[in-house]
Simulated assay, not measured.
Amino acid sequence: MDGLFTYNPAMVKAALGTHMVTGYAEDTFITIEEISQGTTSKTGCDGETVRSVDPNTRFSVKLTLQMGSPTHKYLLNRYNRDKKDGNGSFPILINDLTGKEKFSAINAWVTKLPTNTKGKEGQNKEWTLETGQADFQIE
């Protein structure tokens, strides 16, 4: 292997239920962050250390989309449905076909509406989702 790796953002695919996300922002368009503390440690006065492993595998996912993305309508509908009857959750799958990274959760939901800004040019909108227990694989 010669160590060459090629990343192509067009090969990053995200599905929210049966909806394929489109209209990504120009720069950072997906951010996946662990909600839990992972592994923490505490050291007592005598120098003994205990580690605690948080079994929580929930994540926060941020999608940054261009103003005209059809995904805004999908997410708004899911958010409104959640507010109405609590049935707004959906499965999520994010797959980087070039880097072999895969993120998935059976349940995800919109936490709140994105900040709405207006300016001389079309503004991006950032949606924040949270998941139930999730799986994040990097090969």
Rank of each mutant, 00 (worst) to 15 (best):
D27N: 11
F59R: 00
Q66S: 12
D135C: 12
K84H: 08
Q66Y: 08
D135L: 14
M20G: 00
M67E: 13
T98P: 04
K62H: 09
T49N: 02
N87L: 13
H19S: 08
A25F: 02
T128Y: 06
L93K: 11
S60I: 01
A108Y: 03
W109H: 04
L4E: 09
Q66E: 10
R78A: 02
L129T: 05
K112C: 07
T111E: 02
L16V: 06
T31H: 10
T115A: 14
G88N: 01
K102R: 06
E139T: 15
E26V: 13
K83S: 03
T98W: 04
G86Y: 09
M1T: 05
E26Y: 10
A25W: 02
R78P: 03
N77Y: 07
E101D: 06
H72M: 10
D46F: 11
C45Y: 13
E126R: 12
Y79R: 04
V12E: 04
K120I: 12
D27Q: 10
L63F: 06
T117A: 14
V53D: 05
Q137E: 13
M11F: 13
R58P: 03
M1V: 11
Q133S: 13
W127R: 06
I138N: 08
D96G: 04
Q37H: 08
K125Y: 02
P9C: 08
G47H: 06
E34R: 15
L129S: 01
A105I: 10
A14P: 06
N8E: 02
Y79K: 00
E121K: 15
F29C: 07
K13A: 15
E26F: 12
E34N: 10
E130A: 01
G122I: 11
K118R: 11
C45L: 15
K112Y: 04
T22V: 11
L93R: 10
A105Y: 05
T31F: 12
L16M: 08
N95L: 14
E101G: 06
W109F: 08
K120Y: 07
I106L: 14
T111Q: 05
T22D: 05
E139Y: 15
P55V: 09
L16G: 00
V12R: 08
T49K: 04
D82L: 05
I30R: 00
T28N: 13
Q133I: 10
S69W: 07
K102S: 00
F90P: 01
N80K: 09
P9E: 03
I94H: 02
S69L: 13
I106Y: 12
K112W: 01
V53K: 09
T49R: 05
K84I: 12
P70A: 02
I32K: 06
I35S: 05
R78H: 03
G68V: 08
L129D: 00
S89T: 03
E33K: 15
V53T: 04
E48F: 11
L93P: 01
R51Y: 13
K83L: 15
N80T: 00
S41M: 11
V61N: 03
E33W: 09
E121H: 15
T6S: 09
T6H: 06
N87G: 03
Y79N: 05
F29M: 08
K100Q: 09
L63G: 01
C45D: 15
